[in-house]
């Protein structure tokens, strides 16, 4: 995870950008849990990769989300 205070270009994150990264981070945490029912895990993963795209395309993060 990169420093959440700035994007990959070193610019401070806007409030909207912070919210996007925050949602992504929370979804990633949910995706990694193994104690949730399949319906929760699978849909969290789908949602997480969509948020990864938003954050990655906006140069807010640079990482592989690391879930199947």
């Amino acid at each position: 995870m990169t420093n959440e205070a700035t994007d990959l270009l070193g610019n401070a994150l806007s409030a909207d950008e912070r919210e996007l990264v925050d949602i992504y981070t929370r979804l990633k945490a949910l995706s990694g849990r193994d104690d949730l029912p399949p319906v929760a895990t699978a849909n969290a993963k789908q949602a997480m990769v969509l948020m990864w795209n938003a954050c990655n395309d906006l140069a807010l993060i640079c990482e592989e989300p690391g879930c199947d």
Binding site: Q46, V49, W52, N53, N56, D57, E64, P65, C67, D68
Partner: peptide, 11 residues
């Protein structure tokens, strides 16, 4: 492709 790759491909 993994789940993320496939979503990126669409993007």
């Amino acid at each position: 492709d993994g789940r993320k790759d496939w979503s990126w491909i669409a993007d």
